[in-house]
Write a protein that binds this DNA or RNA. Sequence first.
DNA 1: ATTACAATGTTATAATATAACAATAAAAGA
DNA 2: TCTTTTATTGTTATATTATAACATTGTAAT
Lengths: 131, 131
Amino acid sequence: MAQKKKYLSKNQKIVLDIIEKSAQPMKAYSILFNVQKKGLKAPPQVYRALDKLVEIGKIHKIESRNAFIACRNSACTITNATAFSICESCEDVKEISSSKLSKYLSNFQDKEGMKFNKYNLEFFGLCKKCK
Amino acid sequence: MAQKKKYLSKNQKIVLDIIEKSAQPMKAYSILFNVQKKGLKAPPQVYRALDKLVEIGKIHKIESRNAFIACRNSACTITNATAFSICESCEDVKEISSSKLSKYLSNFQDKEGMKFNKYNLEFFGLCKKCK
DNA sequence: ATTACAATGTTATAATATAACAATAAAAGA
DNA sequence: TCTTTTATTGTTATATTATAACATTGTAAT
């Protein structure tokens, strides 16, 4: 289980802040560009903050896009069971919070009866606007 | 729907061949290294073959690992509904073929009733050996 | 034969991410 | 308090993953 942290460090706050202000996932170097005025000059500073924020569930990585999105889900308790919808036209990304879906996937067993403590699911299609 | 292609080109065959021989996902530059003796010298040659092979469903990309695995599923008809289990210790990857799971996910609708024509699901945990 | 399209070869470079190390700061234990 | 441990920071350099751009060749369809 990922640690619950009460306080974020300075760099972590700066990075989280910019991601939360964005409606859409942000790429690491776009974040870097945006936080340079705040003194974060080099990639490792951003990547370290990103790593920590992912670890504690404040943000999620959209693997197919190499981008990071703020978690708006149930006070960010979900770090190990993530699902997203991604519009293949406008790249709009939404986090899906469906207890039915998460129950189904958390209980899923493979052919050998194995269960998994973690998953990431990315749905693709066209959003309302683009359809 | 991805095209069904009867014949692969020379480079596509070479790249597919090396991936099929590997029990585990291969990274693009590892593939490149392995096919240099066959005349593929530069990244674009490999990436182009990979793109096409993904498109026609002969291989899948494991997004969280930036690696490519051969499809062993039902004659590779599934290019748009993929699920994998990934061992976080030994990095063993298996494609999951469960018609129950794929039906469940293909029929999944989000809160707005939207359906998706494509998804990718990656489960994480410890495999039998590593547990 | 001509046209279109797919695939190839090549060079260069963009985009994403980490290694390694020195220095500070914050938290926890004596 | 102090001192020890752990987390965080700053920095430079470099590794890894992926694509742009363009000239050329091969293949299939008209």
